[in-house]
């Protein structure tokens, strides 16, 4: 599986955006969160997790370390809103073609 993620390409990566995913990286690191984006240069993923205090925890998983990516669930409209309005995203940057 190693390197498979890096070679998927933008059209495949973008299909994971706004989904809750589980990423296995390195030997036994596991990260869960909503996928915000994938860097097309390094294949690194950016995941966010909404916390109860209203803040977000952001994880960046380096593309070279990714072993496996698993989709857990799709975002409902409320989660989509929170993702679109999160401070780490540009206001004008929608996924629509």
């Amino acid at each position: 599986m190693q390197d498979a993620w890096s070679h998927l390409g933008p059209l495949q990566w973008i299909r994971f955006v706004n989904k809750q995913i589980k990423v296995t990286a390195g030997k036994d690191e596991e990260r869960r969160g909503w996928l915000v984006t994938v860097d097309p240069v390094s294949a690194s993923l950016v995941l966010v997790d909404f916390r109860e205090d209203g803040k977000m925890s952001v994880d960046m998983v380096m593309g070279h370390a990714v072993e496996e990516v698993q989709v857990l669930q799709e975002a409902d409209s409320e989660t989509l809103d929170r993702l679109q309005n999160s401070l780490i995203l540009p206001k004008t940057c929608s996924l629509d073609a």
Partner: peptide
């Protein structure tokens, strides 16, 4: 797709 992903990544 590449452009959108990269722009979002740079903002992160």
């Amino acid at each position: 797709a590449r452009t959108t992903l990269r722009e979002r990544f740079l903002h992160c």
